[in-house]
């Protein structure tokens, strides 16, 4: 079996869950090799990568790679593609990941497929499944030129452990002049609570126009916190300034696919549905019985969210105490 390169996504040195999903997917195509771009890989990170089946971990640990955005990861991957001729390169569908994949496709002369929700091997062909137009259409695609470069959406594939001992292989990379042209001069962390990240959360609780005000979102947040959920918002709510833009779910915001999505006061225009339609279970609370979001509901309540949601929060707290 050939190698499958998986670009590792990490935060503060810890391997993100999306990487364990990619390693799981990579095992269907061949032997996964993780690619770590950044200084300082910890033993814990090596262990996590091994636990999910990475037999090799390529480490491009030169301090320079962290000073420039996106291009270094693309150049490291391009170098490895030339060196090991992998079956495929899997990259997380984050902004950084997609852009690195894009640059890699140009450098390596390879076709690219983004936002896959599954990958399989059909003979010697790698087939990617995409869920497009807000999940209304399922597409199977293949890269027809060069090494398949595929970005894989978070939360789409259930991670399964397959422990091996990962062997570290250091990669020395000489960045091109172009890759060094943009320099990261600082990071500013967003003020954030203890909630999980929107695109990785198992449960998302969202509010829309029906929430009515910034203050109204405290009801949404309270429910989210009893469920350990992330908070999302429809475009109507973020455009009105009731909730920050970075939490927008929809066509012009984030795409989420949690186990449970609770939509409160959201009518369900295509703009919003495009970002949450593939959630596994959908609960809807809305005053308007005609709201199109009810078409997606596994369970819906026609009622005022300001009475239903606090009661639900209370009931969950009661049941779990």
């Amino acid at each position: 079996m050939g190698e499958v390169l998986v670009l590792v996504d990490e935060v503060d040195g810890t391997v993100k869950k999306s990487t364990t999903e990619l390693l799981t997917a990579a095992r269907r195509l061949g032997n996964p090799s993780a690619v770590w771009v950044g200084p300082g890989i910890s033993d814990a990170a090596m262990a996590t990568l091994g636990e999910f089946g990475a037999t090799k971990v390529y480490v491009a640990g030169d301090a320079d790679v962290a000073k420039h955005p996106v291009a270094p990861a693309a150049e490291v991957l391009a170098q490895l593609v030339a060196q090991v001729s992998p079956v495929a390169v899997l990259v997380p569908s984050t902004a950084d990941g997609k852009e690195a994949a894009g640059r890699l496709a140009i450098r390596a002369g390879a076709g690219i497929i983004t936002d896959a929700v599954d990958v399989t091997l059909d003979g010697d062909r790698v087939v990617a499944t995409q869920s497009v137009f807000g999940g209304s259409t399922i597409v199977h695609s293949t890269v027809t030129h060069g090494v398949p470069v595929i970005t894989v959406r978070g939360n789409a594939i259930a991670p399964e452990a397959a422990p091996v001992t990962a062997t570290r292989e250091d990669v020395s990379v000489s960045l091109s002049e172009a890759a060094r042209k943009a320099t990261i001069t600082g990071h500013t962390a967003a003020v954030k609570g203890g909630r999980p990240e929107l695109t990785e959360a198992q449960v998302v609780v969202s509010g829309g126009r029906g929430v009515g005000s910034a203050e109204g979102f405290s009801v949404i947040e309270a429910l989210a916190d009893t469920l350990g959920a992330a908070v999302g918002a429809s475009r109507a709510a973020t455009d009105a300034g009731w909730y920050p833009h970075q939490y927008q779910v929809g066509q012009t915001g984030k795409t989420v696919s949690p186990q449970l999505y609770i939509a409160n006061g959201i009518s369900g225009a295509i703009q919003h549905r495009a970002g949450m339609q593939t959630s596994k279970t959908i609960v809807v609370v809305n005053k308007d019985a005609e709201a199109p979001i009810f078409e997606l509901a596994d369970y819906g309540v026609v009622g005022d969210l300001f009475s239903v949601v606090p009661q639900l929060t209370q009931e969950i707290a009661k049941r779990s105490s």
Partner: peptide, 11 residues
Amino acid sequence: GTVVTDEGDGG
């Protein structure tokens, strides 16, 4: 799915 109307016990 199931859709019910809130009669005070929706939550």
